[in-house]
Design a protein around this nucleic acid. Structure first.
Lengths: 211, 211, 211, 211
DNA sequence: AATGAATGAGCGTTCATTCAT
DNA sequence: AATGAATGAACGCTCATTCAT
């Protein structure tokens, strides 16, 4: 495939628009007409730049994921020695990014969720991309876990998966709460949910049963 | 919308078929043509009965969710005093139902996953329905939790949600494993995954930190 | 491919229209919109009946070729013992059919001519069909030739090909003359061109060199 | 249309390329993008020089037909007194030209074949051009015929057309054989087909009927 | 004169929905 | 009540043509 020269301004406008629309309506429900109109370019240009809708979707993923992860300060993860500290810092950080760049965040969330419903060939292409990124994501938490003093009768993999389950669930919950409370604009507004996450992680560390 | 008189046999056939097809391919990829043909009725009847495709999808949801929950033996939950016992029994039970009624189960799973991807108006209608049912689901576990001796410094709601997070995650994992191992046909084949769930619940109960 | 039930009247109207338009403008230049409109049906019906444009083209070929060859009185060929008689009778007959059914005739002519310019898959499908029909056509002339007393120093295949070349060329010439003289409506109007063909065949039989 | 000043080198490159591509793929299947790229000029220049695709096609025809006929050594025709000699020499000569300049030759062949399939306005323009050239072609053979001793009962025009029919048919046959045998590179490889042509011309001269 | 990025009308095709029977 | 033939709006995509530079 020949690489087409793209006007950086138009490319940016297109990808911002497609990020927003794909993130809002998903792949199938987002129409190329709508993207072109909202981005202020012709439909022809979309296809001139990306060849087809599926490739535009993938380009949008690359854009959103680079956009997002370029802004990550990895020291948040690496400098933590304590799980609680790391997770809380990371979550705060993530939420801040999400509040600042909601479209990019929503797109990434939706891309992950709608993967199994994508047309076959696009699904395959996206699976490859997402697997790489998910793996990249996991390893950060991984390192911290390996430093923690675990009880001798638990398996590290079980602990890791359990923590991951709670984080995933909490993240989803926070997404929903953010959607329901568009008035939350700063990290302070989110202290209650951060605290809730802390409490849950403590349950994981110390158990909930009295003994 | 006027309520139409429906031939019970045809209605059943339609809903069984739509359950299977929507569950397999999702809303957009399932064609009304295909449902009508496989159900052995005319496409006209589909629209005569349900008005439009979205309403058929909702009716399918009502059917599948009633189908499924009608068959639940609630004593599995209520007679348990021990969390581990309850969860394991409930999970075994759930898996048995899933193995027995895969179409209904798959539909419910897919309905939950594809909700944000539905056309706008259908999405709203489905969101309302699903929220109600998720709530219903939680309360069962709730009763058992309230009987457990909790540490004084933890909140019951946090514990409940944490357990729920782990169960949800584990359920998803099991779905994937079931999809990858179609040869698992009895509950015995699933003992390893049940055991893994047990270990994770124990982590929740007693914590993973050595102290 | 499921065979769709077709309304005979609409099918006829569609095929008559597609015969006319494909015959006039060729495959690429004929638009499905135009066929639908001129046939008085929706564009959807075209695709419901034939699946795609290429299949409609093939169906049109089958229609035109059956239409045409069903009306052929084969006795014209078989009862002739003399080449001249046979060719003249056959040509008269062909021209009469052409004057009566110009659209079907034109379509067939154009289908043959535009074959190499068709999209690849359609070309293959059409090649198979046309080869069968051309072969069918040739064999009729063949039989008569074999009955003629040939000079010992000529090869039958050379004679056959030479006759065929003259007939083809004459047929093409007649097509053009017919196109230029829409006022020719009966076989009588064509006696001059028939006579010209006779004279040419006589040249073939007896040579043009004085000796 | 204002006549634009054209860079001779670019014009040549464009026409060589369009000759090759139109000859290979035909009018509709040849894209202006492709011509521009292969000719090493911008697409804009194509339209600057020729206004539209149809005009470029016509310019290509003028180029190819002038290219071809400029290289004809007319003495091949004029110096022959014997029909057989003339035709064989001319045919050899033609084939040599075709082997030397295949693109120009192919374009001319395809242009002739696809004329009725061109968009309406282009078709009219091309028809006019081609008719003129075909006439030009005939007159050469004409001179030789007029020198031959014809039987008193044949018309010169009939003889001429009959010869022409056989030559046309034979030429087409040779084209196909050349396409199937790319290994034929010299005139010697073509002696069998030249001989076949000789035999057919003899049939024309002396007839095939024994008497 | 020359570029090539950008356009948009137009194409073949899909499929939920309608409606005469 | 039930059919299924028929519809047509909507879609993704193509490509000759335009025009700012």
């Amino acid at each position: 495939m020949k690489e087409v020269v793209k006007d950086p301004k138009k490319e940016k406008k297109i990808l911002e628009t497609s990020t927003k629309l794909f993130g809002q309506y998903g792949y199938r429900e987002t129409k190329t007409d709508q993207i072109a109109e909202e981005a202020g370019v012709s439909k022809g240009l979309l296809f001139h730049y990306y060849g087809n809708k599926g490739a535009l979707y993938q380009a949008t993923y690359v854009y959103a994921s680079e956009f997002f992860y370029q802004r990550i300060d990895y020291s948040v993860w690496t400098k933590a020695s304590d799980l609680l500290e790391m997770v809380v810092d990371a979550t705060k950080y993530k939420i801040e990014l999400q509040l600042t760049y909601p479209h990019e965040f929503d797109f990434l969330m939706k891309a992950y969720a709608e993967m199994p419903l994508l047309p076959e060939s696009l699904k395959e292409a996206m699976t490859a991309r997402l697997n790489a990124d998910v793996h990249h994501n996991l390893t950060l938490t991984d390192e911290v876990i390996s430093k923690l003093p675990l009880r001798p009768d638990v398996q590290e993999s079980d602990v890791l998966e359990t923590i991951y389950a709670v984080l995933t669930s909490e993240t989803t919950k926070i997404q929903q709460e953010l959607a329901q409370h568009p008035e939350w604009k700063t990290i302070e507004d989110l202290m209650p949910v951060i605290d809730r996450m802390k409490r849950k992680l403590k349950i994981l560390e110390y158990g909930f049963i009295e003994h």
